[in-house]
Design a binder for these strands. Sequence first.
DNA 1: TCTCCACCTGTACTTTTGTACAGTTGCCCT
DNA 2: AGGGCAACTGTACAAAAGTACAGGTGGAGA
Lengths: 255, 255
Amino acid sequence: MYFNREFSIKDLNKYLTKSDILDLLHICDQALSIREEGELRKLITELKKLIPFDGFSYGLGTKNRDVLYFVDVDYSLEYLERYLEKGYIHIDPILDALVEERKVINWSDIDRIYDRHPEGIVNHEAKVFGLIDGYTYGGDDAEDLATFWFAGRYIERSKRSKAVIEFVVRALTRPLREMYERNKISDRQKLLSNREIEVLNWLKEGKSTWDISSILKISERTVKFHIGNIMKKLDAINRTHAVAIALRDGLIDPF
Amino acid sequence: MYFNREFSIKDLNKYLTKSDILDLLHICDQALSIREEGELRKLITELKKLIPFDGFSYGLGTKNRDVLYFVDVDYSLEYLERYLEKGYIHIDPILDALVEERKVINWSDIDRIYDRHPEGIVNHEAKVFGLIDGYTYGGDDAEDLATFWFAGRYIERSKRSKAVIEFVVRALTRPLREMYERNKISDRQKLLSNREIEVLNWLKEGKSTWDISSILKISERTVKFHIGNIMKKLDAINRTHAVAIALRDGLIDPF
DNA sequence: TCTCCACCTGTACTTTTGTACAGTTGCCCT
DNA sequence: AGGGCAACTGTACAAAAGTACAGGTGGAGA
């Protein structure tokens, strides 16, 4: 994961009280054990004690801005759907700014540049949904970019807020990625039937068609039938490829 | 990962100054991006500003105490080797205490119980090497237990130290596991030759013997020769099994 | 009731795989 | 100089995989 940093510990010392920093430490510590969205939601509530904002959402997208995962915590779901549906992600000047500057982005700063620009429409529509101002920050990987969006009717434009967001987002990025991975796995597992998963697990052990037919007490033909269906569903060329895909996507366990 | 917690944010507020907490936050934040041992070493130096200790080491072991990974930062390498060689890990009362209580363990507390016990030898030998007192803490997974050892001639026995260690160790556990994973991969990769890894990566993509022979511009026979060797080295029944093993053990990348 | 779908089965055929045999070349290190 | 090893190649053949054809059964839900 790669983040650019604007603020140091010294800055935090300047902008935050002891109690603030303890809250921040608590969030960073709790982030280590987030396993599901509810836990993240709770942490966000705590964050609201530190900096004021109304809505929060976060997402994961590829380098060319295909959306892999997007969660509305207390943004406007209607706006988010509109945003994704209309492909605003591809022209959003805030994302442009984040990718280029790689720092915490305050929306108002972008507004001043884009106000008369055609892309201004994205910012304008956000305002209609009560997302008047906000902060966006995130970190990227070789493959994708994780982004965190803090918005509201009133956003405190200060170095303090930016610094807090910088630290919190760094701590929340890994949980986000892990939630996405788990999500993807459970989604894709529905593609394959229970029997197919079973067959796949025996293929992984190096069992032949005949082996599996006698393990499962079905005919060799049926085993081949299942493997054929698995290959179709996973777009695999052969059983080796199918097992590699299933392992890669977490459809079966490596052990 | 599972940790038991003894200290809350309120405790930290009681025991630490603002500057201390900033140092702690910095360590937790930096821990998120640790990729190699040198970076961890640096963080440990910073930790010495917060609590006094001389030696630090950390390790990863299975539930039945086989050592997977053990790193000496500034412990005594001689002692560590002796410790591992003599199988002290199996009788170490400090580990027993950690597994049972799942809290930060102060060695002196254990001493009082074990002083006249045969296992006392482990603690006694540590003292000979200047590891008079110390703290041990860690968190476990389904598979293994990660432990962090802070030792020295003089160790401050206080709730403050315990609380700091509790927070720092939580933050350092994931980097430790990741370093172990990377280590394991590079070790096992040496088993297979470069050409074999290359062939394995094409097998993973579902390529046939003929495909690979034309990709690598070698004869089909040679490809079969490599695959045969791969299967022997990995104890695989067929190419599907070989790919599954290689993926499971991280010999090749799933992508 | 009817449709959908998971699950099952058969025959017949081509292609691919796994492995037996038996070598050569070139590099590194002792 | 010689041993060890990665990388390469050939022929031949039995076993396994992949795919085409054409079906049957039973349960869940519209």
